[in-house]
Design a protein around this nucleic acid. Structure first.
Length: 217
DNA sequence: GACCAGGCACATC
DNA sequence: GATGTGCATGGT
């Protein structure tokens, strides 16, 4: 038996350094769903602009997104990048949301999360990170969200191999931490904060709050 | 001007 | 199953 990864210690170190993150930055659960699609491979500052555009156009609403023509929707999404792709993905998501739950987040919460995850993954344009972000941050289910920062931090610390996959990293957290949506929420947000500030793509770390956990330190 | 950002689907081998 | 490519804006 190998020693469990020091995830709780990581969490405490990040929490002490960065303080509470209070994710997801959105006014409503539906806005979380929208933001989860828009932030795919995009800087959040650009996503914010697209969200403001949607609100200004009265489009932050599942039925309005369902009805509006794709070109108009795409125009509002321009700042978030990949706007034609994301307009289609958003429409796919709201079509499912309306059909499946009548646009009611409360009704989604009544569904078994494992089944909900499969349904979300069946929507074109909703991959694992987006599905998990919706489950955790819009619906409050205890499912861990993995992203590029998570991968970079874990692999650079030797906790997973570089060529690991999404589910492997997700299980690392879910099997070594209590199944707690509030903990998962905060932990993922802290990993993003740490990634943005310290864990740059060039394989060289800035002095960071997790440095003492690196192998050889 | 290159590189990066809270991915994902699809083509091709 | 692995690898490569298209999608696109705005900040550093």
């Amino acid at each position: 038996m190998s020693r469990p990864p020091p995830l709780e210690a990581y969490f405490r170190a990040l929490r002490r350094h960065f303080g509470p993150q209070r994710w997801w930055p959105a006014e409503t659960p539906f806005e979380v769903m929208v933001g989860a699609v828009l932030t795919q491979n995009a800087a959040w500052t650009n996503v914010e602009k697209a969200i403001l555009n949607l609100k200004a156009a009265g489009l932050m609403d599942p039925r309005r997104i369902h009805e509006v023509d794709a070109a108009t929707l795409a125009w509002a999404l321009r700042p978030a990048g990949y706007f034609n792709v994301k307009a289609g993905r958003l429409k796919n998501l709201v079509a499912w949301f309306l059909e499946r739950a009548g646009g009611s987040v409360e009704r989604l919460k009544e569904t078994d999360p494992a089944r909900l995850r499969e349904e979300l993954l069946g929507i074109r344009g909703i991959g694992r990170e987006t599905a998990d972000s919706i489950l955790l941050y819009a619906l409050g289910f205890p499912t861990f969200v993995v992203d590029a920062y998570t991968h970079r931090i874990l692999s650079r610390h030797g906790l997973v191999p570089e060529e690991t996959d999404y589910e492997e990293m997700k299980e690392l957290f879910e099997k070594n931490l209590p199944r707690d949506a509030r903990l998962y929420n905060e932990f993922h947000a802290l990993l993003v904060a740490a990634g943005k500030e310290f864990c740059r793509p060039v394989p060289r770390c800035a002095p960071c709050p997790l440095r003492r956990f690196l192998p050889g330190k």
